[in-house]
């Protein structure tokens, strides 16, 4: 079956994004189809975070469109994105440091009813038992790995259809990276479509279906993750061999 025949869940088309005079994203297009894991890899400063932040409306493209589930969401304000079904687990986690673990999860479910929050919270505590143990602890006191789990759980509180993860492995020990990627696979298994941004190309390509390579604001390569994993240029530039 050819994926191109289905309608994409996320369709980013020809976006240009600027920071003042800096042209950070120069006409980027890509698609994420339902039930895929798509990864966007690239060096530091390539524009990966800018791309994700633009999709969620935190930044505005000067040109181009973003469609989600067939609907043009390019000019929706960022606080309306989560109710569309798009969740972002941002770079650097950005959990609410001064709130407790429980409060962070509650805020993740901000747009939902109290009863739904309760059931989602129980689900998260089951998936992330560590968070249950730390329920009443102030989030700023958690370890890096725990903070990443909290950020992921918080993003999942609304049961989003698309989960975007911005460098979830950043700053974590290898064993924790394994664990985080395991959780991403589990979430994908539970029916969440995933757009994963990583500098850790090896890991990202090994769990993704398809991949895009971003270099200084443009997509320079795309294909099946497996093919890219064995592509000489990719190996040289991103896998160190």
């Amino acid at each position: 079956m050819s994926e191109e025949k289905r309608t994409p869940l996320l369709d980013v088309s020809g976006i240009h994004v600027y920071y003042g005079a800096i042209h950070a994203i120069k006409g980027v297009s890509f698609q994420v189809y339902p039930d895929e894991i798509v990864t966007l890899i690239g060096a530091n400063g390539a524009g990966k975070s800018t791309t994700l932040n633009t999709i969620t409306g935190l930044l505005r493209p000067k040109q181009g469109t973003i469609c989600f589930d067939g609907k043009n969401v390019t000019s929706l304000p960022s606080h309306k994105m989560i109710s569309q079904g798009i969740a972002l687990c941002p770079e650097g986690r950005r959990i609410f440091q001064q709130m407790t673990v429980r409060e962070n999860l509650e805020m993740g479910g901000f747009i939902r009813q109290a009863s739904e929050i309760q059931s989602s919270m129980e689900e998260m505590f089951e998936r992330f038992p560590r968070l249950k143990e730390r329920e009443k602890q102030v989030a700023g006191t958690l370890s890096g790995g725990e903070q990443q789990m909290l950020a992921m759980a918080r993003a999942l509180m609304t049961r989003p259809r698309l989960l975007m993860l911005d460098e979830p492995s950043m700053g974590l020990a290898p064993i924790l990276v394994e664990q985080i990627f395991g959780i991403i696979k589990e979430m994908h298994g539970a029916g969440v479509t995933i757009l994963l941004v990583e500098q850790n190309a090896q890991m990202a390509l090994s769990i993704a279906d398809r991949a895009y390579v971003l270099e200084t604001g443009t997509i320079t390569m795309e294909g099946q993750a497996d093919d890219l994993l064995h592509n000489d240029n990719v190996r040289k530039a991103y896998l160190g061999s």
Partner: peptide, 8 residues
């Protein structure tokens, strides 16, 4: 930014 990602 994180607040608006929550839908606030």
């Amino acid at each position: 930014g994180a607040a608006s990602l929550m839908g606030i």
